[in-house]
Design a protein around this nucleic acid. Sequence first.
RNA 1: CGGGGUGUAGCGUAGCCCGGUAUCGCGCCACAUUUGGGAUGUGGAGGUCGUAGGUUCGAAUCCUGCCACCCCGACCA
Length: 493
Amino acid sequence: MSKGLPKRSEDYSLWYNELVKRADLAENSPVRGCMVIKPYGYSIWEKMQAQLDKMFKETGHVNAYFPLFIPKSYLSKEASHVEGFAKECAVVTHYRLKNAEDGSGVIVDPDAKLEEELIVRPTSETVIWSTYKNWIQSYRDLPLLVNQWANVVRWEMRTRLFLRTSEFLWQEGHTAHASKQEAIDETVQMMNVYAEFAETYMALPVVRGVKSVNERFAGAEDTYCIEAMMQDGKALQAGTSHFLGQNFAKAFDVKFATKEGGLDYVWGTSWGVSTRLMGALIMAHSDDNGLVLPPKLAPIHVVIVPIYKGDEELSRISEKANEILAKLRAKGLSVKFDNRDTHKPGWKFAEYELKGVPLRIAMGPRDLENNTVELARRDTLTKETINLAEVAIEDYVSELLDTIQETIYQKALDFREEMTTEVNTWEEFEKVLEEKGGFLSAHWDGTSDTEEKIKELSKATIRCIPLSGKVEEGKCILTGKPSKQRVFFARAY
RNA sequence: CGGGGUGUAGCGUAGCCCGGUAUCGCGCCACAUUUGGGAUGUGGAGGUCGUAGGUUCGAAUCCUGCCACCCCGACCA
């Protein structure tokens, strides 16, 4: 491994790719478009999962698991849904291999062709709704609030670690409701859960909004989303929540007996976030020294690095270090004491910076003499010396971690604000997009044609119609037709 | 899937134009000296040059096919 990461300012995507690999988050696999998520990367994902799962349970959802394979016929039941996914589905056609007669290895046994081909799920609406048909008879069975943690496959042309891979991990919530309003409320609620997760845990400020018709989920009536801004000025969709109307209920004939004695189709929602959040986390906060992780998602909060000459000194430092370690752990913090003698302190400093550990405590003979430790913050790269007689280290560290979490969030928020520009003419739009990037808050006439045209001309898409957006009369940036609200445009991942 | 680029040791590379069995750095192993920001020295291990063919006495090098990866488009979370 060579020193130093590529600079963000020189080659942002190279920086990202290298960082993902060098920080031991993930690597490319032998299978095209798929990734190996390495233990360190996976432990961040596990922390995300744990928190999200808790939030889902708190809002009344339960977990279940549905099959990986979907009969081909299911996918064609909802017309716009097929259209949305057909181009990127992996298909299972056979169920057996055999040895080639010429000894060249195994081949697909042509006699083992499946009666009906199976699709590797690109998303599970179809299997789940076909199951819900049996689970729902009466309004008493509603609402049905189910989530599943799973992998899905979308055969992507161009892949990038975490941001877009052919197989990825995610959660998909699928709910069924007796009324339209209740389903809409659920959709909005889950968007808000995602937004809260992003902001509080990932320290990632997001814009809550609704997708335009072009950008919304195939099969949905409305797609709500959270959009984040990356350091290179490109937007990234961090989560989506869909109001499905009665589309899937009608496609899979899911009806229920109403309280009033009638029979009606149920109302559905689905919502998901994926390992793509890992990409967002990396691109939002990290710097040229490596990862910067918000304490709430960092697998290791604090690393203690001893500086010593000889075994005797190490054992004296270890004794003190273990005391501190015990105190910090008692506070519920994840602490690592790196007493490996195979690497020098300087090497370890660089290593933990690369991996984004929020706080580093260094302890050497001088500290032992003075009863101090050196505390270094990953986010600001600043150091301070703490006198252990004057402050309770566990309280100090614990508060500092909270400060770091806030600082990272605030920095990302400031950046997002700075990268959000109101534009009023097409010339301005093109200029800002080219020279600055970021979100462009602009008027749009509300038609798909115009959106399409803007995309062709500028490569920018409507990221969302912000829920907190300024409602004001204006003229469409491209056509000059009347508009009632500003929407957010950006080039996006 | 279109356009461009790259495949040489675990990683990064030189050599390719001009054919003669592979260079350097990092990492790895051993020993010694080191340890408050990626240590130094000495010795050592490690390569079917992406892959399959072809040309040739001889191919990393020339030719053809295929594969993978990267960048830019179209598609998407």
